[in-house]
Design a protein around this nucleic acid. Sequence first.
DNA 1: AGATGACTGTATGACGTCATACAATATGAG
DNA 2: CTCATATTGTATGACGTCATACAGTCATCT
Lengths: 177, 177
Amino acid sequence: MSALTNNELDAPPWSRVESTLMATARLIREAFDARLEALDLNLTQASLIAYVSEFGATTQTRLADRLGIGRAAIGTVIDRLEQRGLVERHPNPDDRRVWLVDVTDDGRHLATRIELVDEQLRGELRHGIGREERQALSWVLTRLQHNLQTAIATTSATSTASAGSSTDPSIPISNRK
Amino acid sequence: MSALTNNELDAPPWSRVESTLMATARLIREAFDARLEALDLNLTQASLIAYVSEFGATTQTRLADRLGIGRAAIGTVIDRLEQRGLVERHPNPDDRRVWLVDVTDDGRHLATRIELVDEQLRGELRHGIGREERQALSWVLTRLQHNLQTAIATTSATSTASAGSSTDPSIPISNRK
DNA sequence: AGATGACTGTATGACGTCATACAATATGAG
DNA sequence: CTCATATTGTATGACGTCATACAGTCATCT
């Protein structure tokens, strides 16, 4: 019955904020997965059900975008949920390429339980963190995302360029993807 | 000027902050991987080399802990780096169970280039984010990690427990700049 | 009409990581 | 010393995701 692994300070190999952020993300997934295990779901599956349950029948590609995973991956996720009778694929008469994924009654019922788990856990995570701090966090993360995307976009060029930088928003690097 | 947050509905399936955080973490990995591609390394490999290069020969289990991945996974990472002649496994006379992983000269040379990439990218990521904001971010993340760990620890028990009291006596909330 | 390109969902193989089980070794109690 | 327990690294199988290639379907432009 050891008290959880109490590693307080791992100064991870990399920088500080970045790796802390990644570790936190891992923990988020871990925590949600743990709580959702009672429903025999993981975070991705639960997110899908919650999304469809809230916004209605949705295209697979759109779901993939919203959940932040690839089109191929979302297919297998849906496959399993469909086997369990939680979602259904309906054809779209207006576009025969696509499926409209919708929740079944079972799925809708499960969605309410998911919502409960979500709200409960999010409440616990807010402990000791003020509203402004959460907003500040959100803002910094958004800004970071922006920086990251431009950093990714400006890769593939010569590695040692720029440096001086700042205010170079142009850089028309036409990358795929 | 910047059209950030134009997305009215980028509200991903889940909450807001949590999924933003996870998406940001994904982008961090992506950005580092992209920049490290020139060295034919991914973030994990680069972290390992950087760590060993800075702190000297290290046990595999310790490396796994520091890098935040499992003992099995670290083995395959080391295998590949060893094949490429970037690290070496030395036996430890004091404990014949363990290997001491150390960088070769090639690895050490590569480590300096890794350091460059790291510093460059981290610099770009700081754009438009003040020092206090970074510190605040770091603080909130740490606090979040704590909450997450207790949340994970208090799972598996009956789900509907707690909620009320925080009862987190320790938690030094002292520092805020 | 027909042709060309764009898009959706799927099949396939690959990668990185995890969980588990295991042999070799170390540590400590008797 | 001997034995039980813990720890290290590894082998194995599994999972989730990705990248690519592909067939079916739409959209558009002559």
